[in-house]
């Protein structure tokens, strides 16, 4: 054969190549490839798990945010109700206070009037008594009439001051 081409040697080389292919595939390529593939799948799984966890967390966050918004809304309603009720209570208390105050003033006026009437009645009685006593003294002793009148008016004045005070 030209160029020293030898079919037997070509077959020997091919046999060697097939042998080498088997050796490298079984001992090196497949185990390393499998290891790399397994690691890649593991990392992909981890990645997917992380993404799922993240997605779940996002969902939970959204749920909680919705709940918080709802609670805030409810809170605002309750606050408004409480505020309205408090306002009504305030109005009622003020109104009651006004009524009570008016009643107290009225009662006090009534009481003062009654006291005034009582005092006037008493004074009238006392004046009558004093007048009676004065007349009696005049009748009994004419000379001291002027002094008696002075004493009488002073005592009336004192009583008046004491009653007002």
């Amino acid at each position: 054969m030209p160029l020293n081409i030898d079919w037997q040697q070509i077959l020997l080389h091919m046999f060697n190549l097939v042998l080498l292919f088997g050796i490298l595939y079984v001992l090196l390529y497949k185990p390393v490839h499998d290891f790399m593939e397994k690691r890649e799948k593991e990392y992909e799984k981890r990645d997917a798990d992380t993404k799922n966890a993240l997605s779940d967390a996002e969902k939970l966050k959204a749920e909680y945010e919705a709940k918080i918004a709802e609670a805030e809304k409810e809170n605002a309603l309750v606050r408004a109700e409480i505020s309205a009720k408090a306002e009504a209570d305030r109005e009622r208390i003020i109104s009651d206070a006004h009524e009570s105050a008016a009643k107290i003033v009225e009662d006090a006026g009534e009481k003062a009037r009654m006291e005034h009437d009582r005092l006037m009645a008493r004074a009238r009685t006392e004046i009558a008594e004093y007048a009676s006593k004065a007349a009696e003294k005049i009748v009994m002793k004419e000379g001291s009439l002027t002094d008696d009148f002075d004493t009488f008016f002073e005592s009336v004045k004192d009583q008046k001051d004491n009653g007002n005070g």
Partner: peptide, 9 residues
């Protein structure tokens, strides 16, 4: 040449 031919083939 024989080795190269076997590889090519």
């Amino acid at each position: 040449i024989n080795g190269a031919i076997s590889m090519g083939v």
